[in-house]
Nucleic acid binder design. Sequence first.
RNA 1: GGUAACGUGGCCGAGUGGCUAGGCAGAGCUCUGCAAAAGCUCGUACAGCGGUUCGAAUCCGCUCGUUACCUCCA
Length: 496
Amino acid sequence: MNHPLSLYNTLTRTKQPFTPLESPLVGLYVCGPTVYGHAHLGHARPYITFDVLRRYMQYLGYKVRYVRNITDVGHLQNDADDGEDKIEKYAKAHQLEPMEVVQQYTNSFHLDMASLNILPPDIEPRASGHIIEQIEMIQEILDNGLAYESNGSVYFDVPAYNKDHRYGKLSGRVIEDLLNNTRELDGQEEKRSPLDFALWKKASASHIMRWNSPWSEGFPGWHLECSAMSRKYLGKQFDIHGGGLDLMFPHHECEIAQSQASHNHTDAARFWMHNNLITINGKKMGKSLNNFITLGELFTGSHEVLQQAYSPMTVRFFILQAHYRSTLDFSNEGLQAARKGYLKVMNGLRILDQLQYPTGTAAVDAKADEEIQKLTSELFVPLNDDLNTAKSIAALFNLLKKINSMHTGGFKLEILSEETFEQMRQQYRTLALDVLGLKIEQTTDALTLLEVVLGFYKEAKETKDYAKVDAIRAQLKGQGIVIKDMKSGIDWAYEE
RNA sequence: GGUAACGUGGCCGAGUGGCUAGGCAGAGCUCUGCAAAAGCUCGUACAGCGGUUCGAAUCCGCUCGUUACCUCCA
């Protein structure tokens, strides 16, 4: 397969032509959520971005295996917190089982993802279901002399690793600089170097989530699950690893070190991709700043900064109108503009479905035909340049102008060849629906529409226009609705 | 403090040496019973100051401003 798809690789800081290790197979791993809260707007970005990448690769003919994990263990609140993890902390406050919390937010996450029309991953492994694999990986790193045990916990030996490898190659960090700028944090006594990170943590007495291991009863370190699970399902080396920019250091850096130290592959993933962050008032939207808007709040408009509710497809379109490596600032104006743009694209879809290529022969206008061919051909090209969805959408609008003209009659369909017309129709639909993953949202409420129809029905009865009365009755019956004329007024019921 | 980015018209947001980005908002026109939709036209934008060049939003330098990572975070 020879596609001109180029992707920006954080590892090399350049755009590189993408070729899979074993075409047409593509292994794609994306860091999934830590399920201790509802997903917010910031979470939507990587999952939408990599959903489009996956969809586009499938469109190109690749067979993609997409793995996105659920992190439900580990992730310390902070180093001074005596080993109490976030999920546990929340669970105690609410008197719930930790796994109950995990399940609740996993369900919520899945609902949000489905609303955004994000295709489910092929494999969605949970960290808590892969403790054995993680323990095995720790043992390998210990055997290779790049980790050490300390008081029941196991730490990755960053300085030892850095002798033969470069810790910091992904994020552009230099170990000496890191050492010079280490913050003074508590709970570091067990570590030989402040840069060392935990592979296994011994659980404190109060820690509920705990597993047996050769070293202590405890829980795995907070970078290990991705290394273990990507390896299990995609192999020691695979094609693409994605995630948010804020995971680059230390999370992804540690993943690289763990993979190298355990199974000696220089780069577990050949391409590392990072989406930029969503900002609000110029500041990163994130849990730590407590300035986030959850997807649920966005969809219902129930947050004080929201002037209105924004539908899932509005959110999706908003995100796709910016390139994934640029920051994107949240604003009501931006979302409102996205909403209109999205609806415009959907109206185009409706028009395309209605357009009929005229039967009978007419002279094809070569110039017009060529113009439409050109606009059509520009639809997918930007995606090859590091997934430039913003530019593809612009191309979609350029073609849409012509489609609208065809609809209103300014542009005569018969001056196009049938082939050009079908190409245009098919490509527009494929880009909008299959690759960008937009879908038509139900914007009308059937019951409200029914009230409108019943209004006309009442009017027809009053003017004794029985032909119309009968027609309305018949039409509604066809929809499974029966009208009931009662003394008290007009009512309706589902036909039994 | 270290490292890495960014600063584009009223708003959002592509573009990286010469060729219309696009969307939203605004103005005008066409169409129209009214309206809407749609189409066409318009504003002549690239933080500031220097430099390189026939030519810079795009390359280089400086200044100003903003942000991210360095600690859990998509």
